[in-house]
Amino acid sequence: MIITGLLCGALLGFVMQRGRFCLTGGFRDMYIAKNNRMFYALLIAIAVQSVGVFLLIDLGVFEYSAGSISIVSVIIGSFVFGIGIILAGGCATGTWYRAGEGLIGSWIALAGYMLMSTIMKSGVLASFNQQAQQSAVFPTNSIAETFGINHWIIIIPFVVIVALIVYKQLTKPKVVIPALKPKRTGLAHILFEKRWHPFVTATLIGVIALIAWPLSAATGRVFGLGITTPSANILQYLTTGDKGFINWGVFLVLGIFAGSFIAAKASKEFRFRMPDVKTGINSFIGGNLMGVGASLAGGCSIGNGLVMTAMMTWQGWIGLIFMILGTWTASYFVFVRPRQKAKAAKLKEQVTPA
Score class of each variant (00 low, 15 high):
L191W: 02
G220S: 05
G186P: 08
N288I: 15
L210H: 00
R273E: 15
G226D: 12
A258D: 01
I205F: 09
H197S: 13
L225K: 08
G255E: 06
H189K: 15
A264K: 01
V200Y: 15
G220R: 09
D276F: 05
A264I: 09
V292R: 07
G220M: 01
F192I: 10
P198Q: 03
I262C: 00
V277H: 06
Q236A: 13
G244F: 01
D276I: 04
I227Q: 14
H197K: 11
I302Q: 07
C300L: 04
M290Y: 10
G299A: 02
P198M: 05
H197N: 14
E269A: 13
Y237I: 01
K265N: 10
F199M: 11
I227Y: 15
L235S: 06
G293N: 04
L254R: 04
L210K: 03
G280K: 04
N282V: 02
G206K: 04
G299K: 00
D242Y: 07
H197I: 07
I234F: 09
W248Q: 01
T219K: 05
I285D: 05
F261Y: 12
Q236M: 15
T279I: 08
K268F: 10
A218V: 00
G286T: 02
T279L: 00
F272A: 14
E193H: 09
I211F: 13
I234T: 07
S260T: 04
K278M: 06
G291K: 11
L254F: 12
L289D: 11
I246L: 11
V222L: 09
A258Q: 01
G224C: 04
I281F: 11
V253W: 03
F245R: 09
A202M: 03
F257Y: 14
G220L: 09
R273Y: 12
S295L: 06
I302G: 10
G249D: 10
G244E: 05
F272W: 15
I285P: 03
A266W: 14
L254M: 13
